[in-house]
Amino acid sequence: MTISGPIISIKDATKRFRTVVALNQVSLDIFSGQVVVIIGPSGSGKSTLLRCINRLESVEEGEVWVNGVQINHPSTNINEVRVEVGMVFQHFNLFPHLTVLENVMLAQSIVRRRDKDESREIAYALLQKVGIREKIDVYPAKLSGGQQQRVAIARALAMNPKIMLFDEPTSALDPEMIKEVLDVMLDLAHEGMTMVVVTHEMGFARAAADRVIFMDQGEKIEDTTPVGLFENPESDRLRLFLSKILDH
């Protein structure tokens, strides 16, 4: 099935947490194969925006369309949409009672209804790809942060998603482990995966992003290219933000 037009389309999304406006009339179209990096100061609504794409948060006003389905419509079966949208969390959220292999196999069997052999083969291949093949029978607690995050990426990829969401995937990692995770993400980007990444890693934005979205106080301030971001920031708020994160 080919969908003409954007694979993700957010129209005038608004969301409040009590009195705080987390998203204010945000509109965003993302096309298949694009790598979109969302940056912004903490509390700017970038994680909320990301979580609205698979309805871990629901918007109060506006529309969110993913893969041709309006996901904030009451009749939508969200689980069918979520299968196509992988998500990687800041704190990995691996299942601690399952081994690495079981982590990658679980949803394949109960959601995708694959049999044991098939899901094991897929898990082997993906764990090989993220470089954890030798740790498959280990429990997550015995892995380093970088290894856990790579398993989490494999777990999400095992569902064959069309879109991958990354919510600050390297923020909880020790510095020496950031690269191994970013390398896996770069590979994915080069393979043409549609990716939406909330991150503070400007290096990743420069190397892999097609677009960079800058958010502040729940609003989309700029929608630009990585080159445009660094060489030609239009708004004062972005210039201020860049000066804060780059001057050290």
């Binding site: 698979n54 871990l56 069918e80 959220n93 299942f95």
Partner: peptide, 14 residues
């Protein structure tokens, strides 16, 4: 941790 349910649900589990 709430993240456990979120991880499961984001994989398409009910």
């Amino acid at each position: 941790n709430k993240g456990q349910i979120e991880a499961g649900r984001s994989l398409g589990m009910t």
